[in-house]
Amino acid sequence: LQAFIKTLTGKTFTVEMEPSDTIENLKAKIQDKEGIPPDQQRLIFAGKQLEDGRTLSDYNIQKESTLHLVL
């Protein structure tokens, strides 16, 4: 599935991932794409901060969901 990552500066980019991917995997993909170390990334979806060990499906993240990236 493709999801949108929106930063506080208003920049939006897309990442490809599977519902079974962990938040940790997602942070690694963001690092590959944007060069931001995972330990500096905080991802917010539906008002909740996402925990590394959980999966996208745990948070009911669907295709074309928008996640907010806070540094």
Rank of each mutant, 00 (worst) to 15 (best):
H68Q: 10
T22N: 04
N25W: 09
N25M: 15
Y59T: 02
E34A: 13
T55Q: 08
E24P: 02
I23N: 00
E18D: 13
K27I: 02
T55V: 08
R42H: 12
S20Q: 10
K11W: 10
R54V: 07
L50E: 01
T14Q: 09
Q62L: 12
E64H: 13
L67S: 01
E18T: 10
D32N: 11
L1Q: 05
L43V: 05
N60C: 05
K11Q: 08
K6A: 07
M17F: 15
R42P: 00
F45N: 03
F4Q: 11
P38L: 13
P19Q: 09
L71E: 07
D58Q: 05
F4D: 03
K48T: 13
D39Q: 09
L8I: 14
Q2I: 15
N60E: 07
D58M: 04
G47L: 02
R54W: 10
Q2A: 08
K63Y: 10
T12R: 07
T9P: 04
I61V: 11
N25Y: 11
Q2P: 07
I5H: 02
K29Y: 07
H68E: 12
K11F: 12
T66H: 15
K33G: 04
M17L: 14
L71G: 06
G35I: 01
L26S: 00
D58I: 01
E24M: 13
L43W: 02
G10Q: 03
L71T: 11
L43D: 00
M17I: 14
I30A: 00
V15H: 01
R42Y: 12
L8C: 15
P19K: 07
Q2G: 05
A3L: 15
P19A: 12
Q40V: 10
Q31Y: 15
Q41D: 01
D58F: 12
I44F: 15
K6M: 11
K33S: 09
N60W: 06
T12W: 11
N25I: 14
G10K: 03
L1W: 09
T55R: 12
K33Y: 08
E64L: 11
Y59L: 06
Y59M: 04
A28G: 08
I23W: 02
R54Q: 09
I30K: 00
G53T: 09
S20A: 09
R42G: 05
R54G: 06
P19T: 08
Q62R: 10
K11R: 14
F13G: 01
D39H: 13
T9M: 10
G10T: 02
L26D: 00
L50W: 03
K33L: 15
Q41K: 00
L1R: 05
L8K: 11
E34F: 14
G10Y: 03
R54F: 13
Q2R: 14
L50A: 03
A28Y: 12
T55H: 06
G53M: 08
S65N: 10
H68C: 11
I5F: 02
L56H: 01
E18W: 13
Q49H: 12
L8V: 14
L50N: 01
L71P: 07
K48M: 13
I30L: 04
K48G: 06
I5K: 00
I30R: 00
G53E: 09
Q31G: 07
T14P: 05
L69T: 00
Q40G: 05
K27L: 02
Q31L: 10
E18M: 14
M17W: 12
K27F: 02
L69G: 01
E16K: 07
G47R: 03
